[in-house]
Amino acid sequence: MATLVTDNCQRCRFTECVTACPVSAFRAGEKMLFIDPDVCVDCGACIPKCPVQAIYEDLDLPEHLNEWIEINARRSKVMPKITMKESPYAGAEERKSSLGF
C-alpha cells in the first residue's frame, strides 16, 4: 500500500510534505505533486504537512477519490523527483482559501 496525492494539490503545490518524506517518493508534476507507490514506504509523515489535506493513505482514501491511486502510479513514473521545498504556485494561498483551509 502507499500514500498518495489528490486533487486538492492542483494549482497549489505546497511542498512542505516533500521534506518529510524519508525515501524521496515525491514527483513534481506541472500543476501538482505525485507519490511513487513503488518508492513510498507508507510512513505517513507527509500527511500532516499538507496545508490543503491533499495527501491520504490509500486505505483511508474517500471512495470518490479512488481514481488518484492510478493517477499517482502512472504520473509518478514520468515526473522528476522532488526532494527540496519549493515556493508554492502564484495563487496557491487563494486556492487554499477556496478549499476552506
Rank of each mutant, 00 (worst) to 15 (best):
M1E: 06
M1N: 01
M1I: 05
A2C: 13
T3M: 02
L4F: 01
L4R: 09
L4C: 10
T6F: 01
T6Q: 07
T6V: 09
D7N: 12
N8R: 04
N8C: 05
C9V: 13
Q10W: 13
C12I: 05
C12H: 05
T15V: 04
T15Y: 04
T15H: 10
C17A: 13
C17E: 12
V18Q: 04
V18I: 09
A20F: 04
A20K: 09
C21V: 08
C21M: 02
P22R: 05
V23P: 05
S24V: 07
A25L: 11
F26N: 00
F26K: 05
F26L: 06
F26G: 04
R27V: 02
R27M: 07
A28L: 15
G29Y: 01
M32P: 05
M32W: 02
M32Q: 12
M32E: 06
L33C: 07
D38I: 08
C40L: 09
V41W: 10
V41A: 02
D42M: 07
D42T: 10
D42H: 09
C43L: 03
G44A: 11
A45M: 09
A45L: 08
A45K: 03
C46K: 02
C46L: 01
I47G: 03
I47L: 05
P48C: 06
P48M: 08
K49D: 08
C50A: 04
P51D: 03
P51N: 07
V52F: 00
V52Q: 04
Q53K: 12
A54I: 04
Y56K: 11
L59N: 10
D60H: 06
L61S: 09
L61R: 09
L61M: 13
P62I: 07
E63N: 11
H64P: 06
H64V: 14
L65M: 10
E67V: 14
E67L: 15
E67K: 14
E67P: 00
W68Y: 15
I69D: 02
I69A: 07
I69M: 09
E70V: 06
E70S: 07
E70I: 12
I71G: 05
N72K: 01
N72W: 00
N72C: 05
N72T: 00
N72M: 02
A73L: 05
A73S: 10
S76V: 10
S76N: 11
K77L: 11
V78E: 14
V78Q: 14
M79G: 03
P80K: 08
P80T: 06
P80C: 06
P80A: 02
K81D: 07
K81G: 01
I82P: 00
I82F: 09
I82E: 01
T83V: 14
T83K: 12
K85H: 08
K85N: 03
E86K: 11
P88Q: 01
P88I: 07
G91E: 13
A92Y: 10
A92I: 05
E93D: 14
E93Q: 11
E93M: 11
E94K: 13
E94Q: 10
R95V: 13
R95P: 07
R95I: 10
R95K: 12
K96V: 02
K96C: 11
S97P: 00
S97C: 03
S97L: 12
L99G: 08
G100P: 07
G100W: 06
